[in-house]
């Protein structure tokens, strides 16, 4: 099968599956309530620690981070395959298992896009931050790039969780919390020691969030495009690692038959 077909078919399965994850009621009263209150919570922490500018900084960071959190939920999709007992079939199929996973959880990016945009709109309406109008106009393309970057990062964590199945929730939560902590969500990346700041250059969210902040501060569009370009490069790097890592895990699984029985 062509690469496009593999990713397309995998994405199709994911979208079909997603219809059964939430009902509109549980999405609104469960997931959205959590996301909105999470962003408001951190905004209030910012308000307590600093001034209005700090609170707005934290609110923007957390509203954008929502898509990164939701995109990493691809890890739960990998767990689902384990429950369904479909790993052996993926392992014997004549394509890279990583390629399947680059499409299999794309519905989380779309869901994250909706959640993040809605949270963004609600926060803007509730707190009336002093953000430039351009951030609203260009939010969607920025969020898509950030979402895809976080998604491929999540895919490699999904691969790790295949080897350590019982730790899947640890991979998920630790994975997105690392982004939330170091990539500029609550404090600028320059706050961290130099090695950590350097490492954030190759983590998803960092450059995309900088682009969003530049838009909110009415900064030059060339800077925004430059940061988005870097975010795309970071996503490509993680996608390549995902393909390599999944192939390695699948090879080992074929060799020792352990893939469906790891703990």
């Amino acid at each position: 099968m062509m690469v496009k077909q593999v990713i397309g078919q995998a994405a199709f399965v994911g979208f079909a599956e997603f219809k059964h994850v939430y009902t509109p009621k549980t999405w609104l009263t469960g997931w959205m309530l959590r996301l909105v209150s999470q962003v408001v919570f951190f905004g209030l922490v910012g308000k307590m620690a600093g001034d209005r500018i700090t609170a707005e900084y934290v609110l923007l960071g957390n509203a954008v981070t929502v898509i990164a959190i939701e995109a990493t939920l691809v890890i739960t999709t990998a767990s689902l395959e384990r429950y369904q007992g479909t790993y052996p079939m993926l392992v014997v199929s004549p394509t890279n298992m990583g390629l399947v996973y680059l499409g299999r959880g794309l519905h989380w990016v779309l869901a994250g896009l909706g959640s993040s945009a809605l949270v963004f709109a609600l926060v803007w309406a509730l707190f009336r931050p002093d953000w430039n109008w351009r951030v609203a106009v260009f939010a969607l393309p920025c969020l898509i790039v950030i979402g895809l970057g976080a998604y491929v990062y999540g895919a490699i964590l999904a691969a790790c969780s295949l080897r350590h199945y019982k730790f899947r929730w640890v991979y998920l939560n630790f994975g997105f919390m690392v982004l939330m902590t170091f990539c500029g969500t609550n404090v600028p990346r320059s706050f961290w020691p130099a090695p950590i700041e350097w490492a954030t250059q190759v983590l998803p969210l960092s450059h995309g969030l900088t682009a969003m902040r530049t838009l909110a501060a009415a900064g030059p569009l060339s800077d925004v495009l430059g940061q988005l370009g870097l975010e795309v490069c970071v996503a490509a790097l993680w996608a390549a690692l995902t393909l390599l890592f999944f192939e390695r895990i699948a090879s080992k699984g074929r060799r020792d038959g352990s893939l469906n029985f790891t703990s």
Binding site: V45, K166, R168, W169, V170, F191
Partner: peptide, 25 residues
């Protein structure tokens, strides 16, 4: 069950987030 120990792994990270906001300001 490692999943029941999830908070033991994530709480220090959450602590770092709160402390970074406090310290930065």
């Amino acid at each position: 069950a490692p999943e029941h120990m999830l908070i033991v792994v994530t709480a220090p990270v959450m602590s770092v987030i709160f402390l970074s906001i406090v310290r930065y300001n």
